[in-house]
Design a protein around this nucleic acid. Structure first.
Lengths: 359, 359
DNA sequence: GGGCTTTGGTCAAGCGTTTAATCAAAGTGG
DNA sequence: CCACTTTGATTAAACGCTTGACCAAAGCCC
């Protein structure tokens, strides 16, 4: 433990004004000494307290000292005093499980940052123990609040410990109403929008290939489909809704059944199914979009934008979900007490729907 | 400022042993009082100091008090004392820009967690100011170190402020050698592996559709392709390397040129190109994999695993990049001082390559 | 039974800030 | 010239925890 002077590097770098290096961090006190004032004064100028009376000259002296020494506040000390940090925790049940789920991180990050908060993230892989630890960690770090998110829209039971913090559910919701603030995609509206794209194309016989897997999306999109038909004065025909596993193979596999229905258009539960369907249709000698119009759901960029023809679809607002989550958490957006906030799923039209000339 | 007693909620919840609620957090001192010991003692049992002498009985009393009161340590106070937090910062130039980039977050998160660290993330969108702020924030929170990552493999100049922390570059590297620890994918090996899949299928005339966009990947994969051919005793034919924009449209557009080369197999710069090529090939009446074998690169799940036929490709080790990044940061893995450490890109074979019966 | 070690624990300083209370000097009005 | 206000800055406590130094009681040995 030999005493150690300023220069920690080996190569002597003469009189660099701003000191950068990885040594003992400069503290408030050092700045104060350098500026010949008390630490209180330095604190005051740093935080620009408006009712603090500091001579302009002194203020300048302090600022110079800060620059000279390359001072950085110790956020931990600050937090200790204030009681809560500038962190927002994000616990996710799958950080990169699905490509676009990353968007909720993205949205949350941007919005948090905008309000001076940083994101602390934890991946739980749906492991309850891991989850508990993650939440505990966040609590210990005195996060402002926690965003509890899932990679696909689903009901979830909120973990007990979560209640120790301010929190909001993102892309999921509590079955018991009013138990928690939440924000989710508006599946019904999405289903309606998707169907309307087809309707606007002049189609009347429209099939819907739904998912076999139970989920709010499955019920919601179906309802949206029905609503849109009804609004257009088209009677709902149960024969026209098929079901398949929601991936490419499912879509491909549904081709045959679909063809039997003699429809001119089809709304697929998601883009992946649409992708599979493209293949099936093509193998049957049909050409898109003329022989069959198709719309998907999710707006999964890699797929939707680059299929041939590019797929018209409806976007899952993951980014907005994340952003809205932090706004609600911070009390910037109103959250209705009774139910989850629903975020709109905007339609994005590309060219997989041809306008059908009336027969 | 009326004095405030324990129960802050309105509904009286009688004698719940573990107190959970969002009120004043319980402190070490309160636990100490409840257990009838000093705060020092409590601290000692919490941290399981092995050379501390505490009677088993006392230890138990303290533990009970902790449980009773629902005590949670204040990580900020801890950090303040110790000087460095249990955070690892991750600054990324695009959190969800590309689907699999999320995997580096994922890998970093898992590995960090494994060693008791939490991830603090910041998205910079390649904005230098944002980046500086993000790094400053991390520094202020006394992160253990920073992972500086990019969403695609590229050279980068390391920001000045980054040097104030312990850091490692992930998926990018500094042009000046030895300037920074870094971990990147091994593009050459990847290119070799991709080519070898084709070679093993018995193919001899193998085309390579490279990207038009300059990048380490472009050079590396080409080199790998050459190396593999050479090792197989096949002379390199510049005629067989085409170039296109690295997406579906690029792959599709390259079809015609490719067909002129009379090859039996093709290695595409990435999966998206391969996807486009599938369409082009099919339109020309070719069937995969019999008329043409194709391998991609990236192993972009949504695409590669679900094309028909499923695409053989080479995986970009984003998860491992993130994980290795924290290991290097933590000094768990050796990092060669001179160059970036290269992570292997493993081949993943599916069924887009038919074994060619020797002519 | 007096000095020594061991056991079980406490004391208090310190980590880097913030902030209410306080204070000294200078200015102001009558 | 004195009482009072304003200005500019300091003092010191507090935030919740860790840790080296210290201490009292009990046990041990000769």
């Amino acid at each position: 433990m030999i005493s150690q002077e300023k220069n920690s590097g080996s190569a002597a770098t003469p009189d660099v004004p701003v000191r950068k290096s990885r040594a003992q961090p400069v503290t408030l006190r050092e700045v104060a000494e350098a500026a010949g004032v008390s630490t209180a004064t330095v604190s005051l100028v740093i935080n620009k307290k408006k009712n603090a009376r500091i001579a302009e000259q002194t203020r300048q002296r302090v600022k110079d000292a800060i620059r000279q020494l390359g001072y950085r506040p110790n956020a931990m000390a600050k937090t200790l005093v204030s009681g809560t940090s500038k962190f927002i925790g994000l616990v996710a049940d799958g950080v990169a499980t699905t490509p676009f789920a990353g968007q909720i991180i993205h949205g949350a990050q941007d919005e948090a940052w905008k309000h001076g908060y940083a994101l602390l993230i934890a991946n739980t892989e749906r492991n309850r123990d891991l989850e508990k630890d993650a939440i505990a960690m966040m609590l210990e770090y005195k996060v402002r609040g926690i965003l509890y998110s899932t990679w696909f829209h689903r009901p979830t039971v909120v973990p007990e410990t979560l209640r120790e913090a301010d929190f909001v559910l993102v892309n999921c919701f509590s079955p018991e109403p009013g138990a928690a603030r939440a924000v989710v995609p508006d599946e019904e509206q999405g289903g309606r929008s998707a169907t309307e794209i087809l309707l606007r194309g002049g189609h009347r016989r429209i099939a819907f290939i739904n998912a076999t897997t139970p989920a709010p999306a499955r019920d919601g999109r179906l309802q949206g489909y029905k609503d849109a038909l009804e609004a257009a004065g088209i009677p709902f025909d149960p024969e026209l809704v098929l079901e398949a596993y929601p991936d490419q193979e499912g879509g491909y596999g549904a081709t045959e059944e679909l063809l039997k229905r003699h429809v001119t258009a089809v709304f697929c539960y998601n883009d992946r199914m649409a992708m599979g369907l493209y293949d099936g249709l093509r193998e049957n000698g049909l050409s898109l979009p003329d022989d069959m119009a198709v719309v998907g759901f999710d707006n999964q960029e890699v797929i939707a934008a680059h299929l041939r023809p590019p797929l018209s679809t409806v976007s899952l607002p993951h980014y907005e979900l994340g952003a809205a989550g932090v706004r609600i958490l911070l009390g910037l957006d109103e959250a209705p007490g009774d139910a989850a906030v629903k975020m709109m799923c905007p339609a994005v039209e590309r060219s997989s729907v041809a306008v059908r000339t009336p027969a």
